[in-house]
């Protein structure tokens, strides 16, 4: 059994697939330091030109919302249909709006 403390830390990998687009989460990998994480991400996630920019973040630094709280967390957005343009009843002859 190997010592769990010697396992290289886990990193989350985000890739910008094309200039002008957002970085998107693609997966994770293990690496000893940030530079190795970027090099490994290059080899693991961009073998076919999938990216022009890589972000890596140590997984332990990611804070996530709890899926069990989803109902309460997103509830305030649920009943505000007036935030959407289709909520408003305007005459058809109104153009360019």
């Amino acid at each position: 059994m190997s010592d769990p403390n010697t396992e290289w830390p886990l990193w989350e990998v985000f890739i910008r697939s094309r200039q002008g687009l957002d970085h998107k989460h693609v997966g994770s990998l293990h690496a000893a330091d940030p530079q190795m994480a970027i090099e490994n991400a290059r080899d693991v996630y961009t073998r076919r030109m999938e990216g022009v920019s890589i972000w890596v973040v140590e997984s332990k630094h990611i804070h996530a919302s709890n899926p069990d709280d989803a109902a309460a967390l997103y509830d305030p957005a649920n009943d505000k249909a007036y935030r959407h343009p289709t909520f408003y009843n305007l005459p058809d002859e109104l153009k360019h709006m």
Binding site: P4, L10, L29, R47
Partner: peptide
Amino acid sequence: VQDEAGHGLYLYSAAETLGITRD
């Protein structure tokens, strides 16, 4: 063969999200 290494790594990290470690 390099792709196969990559596939192994995608899959190990998918399994890790379930709470098992790589080691």
